[in-house]
Computed example of a mutant assay.
Amino acid sequence: MDNQVYLKILKCFGAKGTRFTTEDLARELGTSKRTVYAYFSSKDEMIEKTIDFVFSQIIQSDTDILEDAGLPIQEKLRLYFQNIPDAYSIGAIIRHMDDFQRYYPRLYEKVNHHLDMIWDGAIELVEEGMNRGELHQVDTVILKLMLNETLKKLLDYEFIAGHQVSFESGTKAMSDIVLYGLIKAESS
């Protein structure tokens, strides 16, 4: 399946949420509804495969970082935090979670499952670094909670608009706080 199809579904989804129609997608693709149904058997399948597409891209790029044996843990962590997902793609999905919960409960659970796992690689790196004595000891349950909740807030349009922060600046600030902390290192 051409990635452009998923990007067009995301565009329709971003504009209308779960209320987009097959006709909307066909118009976006410059094709017929019949052609759309040659790719997908139902609207549910369109949405589910698009969710899978978005999260598989995130998982693959995170895996590439985690499996790079030539990088020290600190560099892997820096890269992992710089590899924050595209705000539009994931935000288009998150913004319509109420509709998912109401009309597509199985897909709602799937998105939540993906979001709950999005920081697992970073947590594994932190635990490995702590075990090696390369990182400070921290409570990884609380760290993961902080990361999950911050990401969800940064994907919430009302929060972003109300606090005049962009997704990109917010994720950079979050990663800087996690990676470099609040207290300046004492000079020797």
Rank of each mutant, 00 (worst) to 15 (best):
Y108E: 01
V111G: 02
R102G: 04
R95F: 00
N112G: 09
N112Y: 07
N112P: 06
L79F: 10
K110I: 02
Y80H: 06
H96D: 05
Q82S: 11
Q101R: 08
A92C: 10
D99Y: 01
Y103R: 11
P85M: 03
D98L: 13
D99H: 08
A92I: 08
Y108I: 02
N112M: 12
Y80R: 04
E109G: 14
N112L: 12
Y103S: 12
Y103G: 07
P105L: 05
Y104F: 12
Y108H: 04
R106L: 10
I94A: 12
I84W: 15
R95C: 00
I94N: 12
I94K: 06
I94W: 11
H96I: 03
I94S: 09
I90G: 09
Y108P: 00
I84S: 14
R78M: 14
G91Y: 00
I90V: 07
D98E: 14
I93C: 00
K110L: 06
A92S: 15
L107D: 01
M97W: 03
N112T: 08
Y88Q: 08
R95D: 01
D99L: 11
V111Q: 04
Y108C: 01
I94Q: 10
A87D: 15
Y103N: 12
R95H: 09
D99F: 05
Y104A: 07
R102Y: 08
P85A: 06
M97E: 05
R95P: 00
S89Q: 13
P105E: 08
Y80Q: 02
N83F: 02
H96V: 02
I84H: 15
R106S: 13
I90W: 02
L79H: 08
I90E: 02
I84E: 13
Y104D: 05
Y80K: 01
Y103W: 12
L107N: 00
Q101S: 08
N83A: 08
N83T: 04
E109Y: 13
D99S: 08
Y80T: 00
F81W: 06
L107F: 00
D99V: 02
I84V: 13
R78W: 13
F81C: 10
D86N: 09
F81N: 11
D98K: 13
F81S: 05
H96P: 04
N83L: 03
Q101A: 09
D86F: 04
Y108D: 00
Y108A: 02
R102I: 10
H96N: 05
Y104K: 11
F81H: 15
Q101M: 12
I84L: 15
Y104W: 07
E109F: 13
P105R: 09
K110H: 07
Y103C: 08
L79E: 10
S89F: 11
R102K: 14
R106E: 14
F100M: 03
Y88R: 12
Q101K: 14
R106I: 13
Y104M: 09
R102M: 14
G91R: 00
A87E: 15
V111I: 09
E109S: 14
